[in-house]
Design a protein around this nucleic acid. Structure first.
Lengths: 183, 183
DNA sequence: TGGCTCATGTAATCTGTTACATGATTCT
DNA sequence: AGAATCATGTAACAGATTACATGAGCCA
């Protein structure tokens, strides 16, 4: 039975491409993946231990000089678990935006506070968008295999979503102005 | 110091509008709020107890016949905590879409699996979108105060985001077709 | 030599879900 | 009478974060 823990799936997905250390996994998660998934050492290392026990991955110590170094590889059983999970269309998709909580309950807040919150959100979104566009550019040049196509589609998702967010920021601020003038 | 727990903030925000029971809070969270925030009884009731101890809310037993019923109201201290939190522009905005994890690691999956996943995502998104559009229609008619304006803006955010998702679904499927033909 | 990166790991804590237990009221 | 809804609450578990502890290798 494939593990439900998403950390496990992400690790499996990364190891399906190449063997990695826990540290290396963390670095990759902090890259293009980070816009839809986060992971800390406190979740990665325990997951690696558990998955090795379950036979989904294997480890081999490959020290660099005197520095401890454990490289993990995916097993056949691991590949199967990953493939099985990929085939299940059911997916939990969660959007948890504190900005929306703030906005929803800002009925008694003054207009400047609301606008400041929207502006702050817009800045953060623009920064993330810029990063994704960089990734997209790089990927667009090397879209030679199905791996890269999938990366490209994921990044495109982020770009279209963030662009929609930014458009909303503009229209929201306009509406706020209008309502303000009307009083 | 304002509590960082978002469950607390959501409860405070709801109670700022009207006194409610734990059950009533759960019902409201399951409504228009649910697209950006979820809550279970297992998180709501303990939060209510903790917040009462902290003086952010007060309770009064108002049984209905023989049925136990505890109605919570926000205190001045609670209103201040909420207002303080609303003034901080910093916000954690998390997009956690399993669909994107699946897609990102679908390099070795066959095209039908990927398309099925996208279709499933599109159906779910369309369903959520339809609900939000209903809310928007209702809200559009009664946009008489700043509370309703904030609700409207929040719902609009969801609508624009989900519409962007659906557009992406279409373009993603087209790209997949093209790449498939090219082989 | 000092700071960054590579590298592993754990303990305490937080936050929340799921599942259950319990029972009254209201609607059909 | 039976189903749905109203209503409160807890215990076990899950999943993750934060902060810490530790230390080697590499570059300027």
């Amino acid at each position: 039975m494939p593990n439900e823990r998403k950390t496990d799936i992400v690790i499996l997905g990364l190891l399906a491409h190449e063997p990695l250390t826990g540290y290396g996994i963390k670095k990759l998660i902090d890259g293009a993946i980070s816009f839809f998934w986060k992971g800390s050492y406190g979740s990665i290392y325990p997951a690696l231990s558990a998955m090795e026990k379950d036979g989904l991955i294997t480890s081999s110590e490959m020290p660099q000089g005197d520095r401890k170094r454990i490289v993990y590889s995916i097993t056949e059983s691991g590949r199967k678990a990953l493939a099985d999970w990929l085939k299940i269309p059911a997916a939990k998709n969660e959007l948890k935006y504190e900005t929306l909580i703030k906005l929803f309950f800002s009925g008694s807040a003054d207009k400047d506070t609301i606008t400041a919150n929207i502006d702050s959100f817009a800045r953060e979104t623009a920064a993330k968008l810029a990063l994704l566009k960089q990734y997209q550019e790089t990927l667009g040049k090397i879209m030679d295999n199905s791996d890269h196509l999938c990366y490209y589609l994921t990044v495109s998702f982020g770009i279209e979503t963030y662009e929609a967010h930014l458009r909303w920021c503009e229209s929201a601020k306009k509406l706020l102005e209008q309502q303000n003038d009307r009083r």
